[in-house]
Nucleic acid binder design. Structure first.
Length: 616
DNA sequence: GCCGTTTTCGGCCCGACTGTTTTCAGTCG
């Protein structure tokens, strides 16, 4: 766990404990906000000065002091003081859906419930029912939520959630009266993991009455294991993942890992694993406002609403309206005409903002950034990281080339594994020499696409490369990647990776940290120094598009872009479907505000050639 | 606890849904 993450956890705990103690909620949420800030901060908090912390929005003198205390001692005294007053099991209860601080505090104070077991006892013996405003239905809900918690509540990797969302969206699109269906939320923002899935349905004009049928169909789906809410415009359900594991097995989203390192695949999701899916059905006339509201993030939305208020307007999912403080009835219910609502562009424009790409809606300064022209999937014209049957890929060279050409690419690089990756059938020098010839032979036969003979060369533990320089010099492109020794400490990792990017023949640093989402932390090099070295030596930093990797991660991309580094967005292709992961890599790039120019995969051939000749 | 060309004190986004209620508190996103 990085220091930033450790600090974020402490601050989140403090927020939770303050809420459970009934302290000022605004003070508590200030800590929660600081926790998110720490988690998203690319810079290492351990290296920051107090003044730098104070410059961050939402961090004032008191929080800065607590952070400096953490930097100096690894702890925060106030956290310990709070922890002395709050039974630790209460924090677990906050993770139970439907239970909030007020209810848990009441259970604690009046029934001495302090953790999940004592809550279960209170349910079993009926004492929970003695709480004010606590009836049988509420108890039943709590019991169901407890089962969810026990089944595991890990956030779902983006690529897994994507398939679930698209499957549901496809069914809803086929329903009568539906104008549009869009997955929103953190999925649309391209976050590497997704806590729940949000789906927005727009009804065609005149078909608004069909909304109820949409909600009914959504809740009646065979995958639904629990209905959490069922209103006129809004429904929430939990969808079984165990069921979907079987059903979507052929969709390849379950392929657990790029197969290059012999990591054992994860066990199938335990029975009972499920994910919450929220549905919102609204008229097409308010689709833009609704999509904005549903895409978030929460912090971005709060910013927008504050901005609206400061301009004499109020913003909700029904539109942007003139503000009227004389009534509590919402504007859409009073029949007030919206200033804007139909498209996101309209709403942002009326808020004096350029349209903001969904991936950038995180309250990371985007409202004041001006128009953002970020890289898109359409811009990608080259793939620099692909494997064939020579090592651990499933395609022959010719098929790989054909698939790349079908996608409209002008360049494809064949980069099979190097000799140290024995599990992935890495090529020994003699095999690599023959492979280079074979690749060039295929390249000579095809028109309209250039085929580069390259290698994904292991970065050995000390930062040296897995082939001699004279062999590397024969390659058109060199992707250097760490595959082993992924637990070495930060100074060693920093030295290792900097040494690799400093090699004159290296073009791309592949999956720089080696992390796996939800499964392996990977290396934690000093990113500022690594990025600086990459810039100096004209090495592109890879965003590996596989949803299990997404490495570089979003915050690192932002840091790299700020330092004017080059970014490569590659699919690490092992089989045909891997090209489809490009969307996840591009979303990650956009989360880091990556422009077209910064991304080498968008470059025209001539510009690319100049770079590829580097060191040769 | 933070923040400020309306405020250095007094605010702090907004609506849907549920359950337990006769008007609303709590939770959620």
């Amino acid at each position: 766990m990085s220091a930033n993450e450790a600090l974020a956890v402490l601050l989140e705990d403090m927020q939770a404990m303050m809420e459970l103690l009934g302290e000022d909620s605004f003070r508590a949420s200030a800590h929660g906000r600081a926790a998110r800030t720490m988690r998203d901060l690319p810079a290492d908090v351990m290296l920051m000065e107090r003044a730098a912390l104070l410059a961050i929005d939402g961090i004032g003198p008191k929080l800065a002091d607590k952070m400096m205390e953490f930097v100096a001692s690894g702890r925060i005294a106030e956290h310990a003081a709070l922890a002395a007053q709050v039974p630790p099991g209460l924090l677990t209860l906050l993770g139970v859906s439907g239970l909030g601080p007020k209810t848990i505090r009441a259970m604690w104070q009046t029934l001495s419930i302090v953790d999940i077991p004592s809550l279960e006892r209170a349910i079993a013996d009926g004492t929970l029912l003695t709480l004010p405003r606590m009836g049988q239905k509420a108890v039943d809900k709590i019991r169901a939520s407890l089962a969810v918690v026990k089944a595991g509540t890990d956030r779902l990797p983006l690529g897994r959630a994507w398939v679930v969302a698209e499957s549901i969206a496809a069914r809803l699109r086929a329903m009568p009266g539906v104008a549009r269906v869009e997955p929103a939320g953190s999925l649309r923002r391209g976050k590497e993991t997704v806590g729940d899935i949000d789906i927005l349905v727009a009804m065609k004009p005149g078909h608004e009455a069909g909304s109820a049928a949409i909600g009914e169909a959504f809740r009646a789906d065979a995958n639904v294991v629990a209905v959490l809410a069922a209103g006129d415009t809004k429904s929430s359900v939990r969808v079984s993942l165990a069921y979907d594991l079987g059903r979507w097995k052929n969709a390849k989203e379950l392929e657990p890992l790029p197969k290059d390192e012999g990591v054992e695949p994860p066990a199938a999701a335990p029975v009972g694993r499920s994910i919450q899916v929220d549905l919102r059905v609204l008229p097409a006339s308010v689709f833009g406002a609704a999509l904005m509201y549903f895409t978030g993030s929460k912090e971005h939305n709060i910013r927008l609403r504050e901005r609206a208020l400061s301009m004499g307007m109020t913003l909700n999912e029904w539109g942007l309206f003139p503000e009227d403080t004389s009534t509590k009835v919402s504007p859409q219910d009073r029949g007030v005409a919206a200033v804007a609502s139909a498209t996101e562009e309209d709403v942002y424009a009326k808020l004096n903002c350029a349209w903001i790409p969904p991936e950038a809606r995180e309250d990371h300064g985007e409202l004041d950034a001006g128009p953002m022209d970020l890289v898109t999937i359409k811009d990608i014209k080259a793939e620099f990281h692909a494997h064939t049957t020579a090592s651990d890929g499933s395609m022959e060279i010719a098929e790989l080339v054909k698939r790349a050409q079908d996608r409209g690419f002008h360049t494809i690089a064949v980069t099979d594994h190097s000799q140290s990756s024995t599990i992935a059938r890495g090529l020994r020098p003699d095999r690599l020499r023959r492979h280079i010839d074979a690749v060039h032979e295929v390249g000579a036969k095809v028109r309209g696409i250039r085929v580069l003979a390259g290698s994904e060369v292991d970065i050995l533990v000390d930062g040296t490369l897995d082939y001699d320089d004279d062999l590397l010099a024969l390659l058109d492109i060199v992707v250097a990647s760490p595959h082993a020794a992924l637990t070495q400490d930060a100074p060693a990792a920093t030295a290792r990776l900097i040494r690799a990017v400093s090699h004159p023949l290296v073009h791309i640093l592949g999956h720089p940290t080696g992390r796996l989402v939800n499964r392996r932390a990977g290396l934690s090099p000093d990113m500022a120094r690594l990025i600086a070295a990459a810039v100096e030596h004209k090495v592109a930093l890879e965003i590996n598009s596989h949803w299990m990797r997404l490495d570089l991660r979003d915050t690192h991309v932002r840091q790299a872009i700020n330092a004017r580094a080059m970014i490569a967005i590659d699919c690490d292709v092992h089989e045909p479907g891997d090209f489809d992961n490009l969307r996840f890599g591009v979303m990650t790039a956009r989360r880091g505000w990556c422009t077209r120019e910064a991304c080498v995969n968008t470059w025209p051939r001539a510009k690319l050639d100049t770079w590829l000749k580097k060191g040769r």
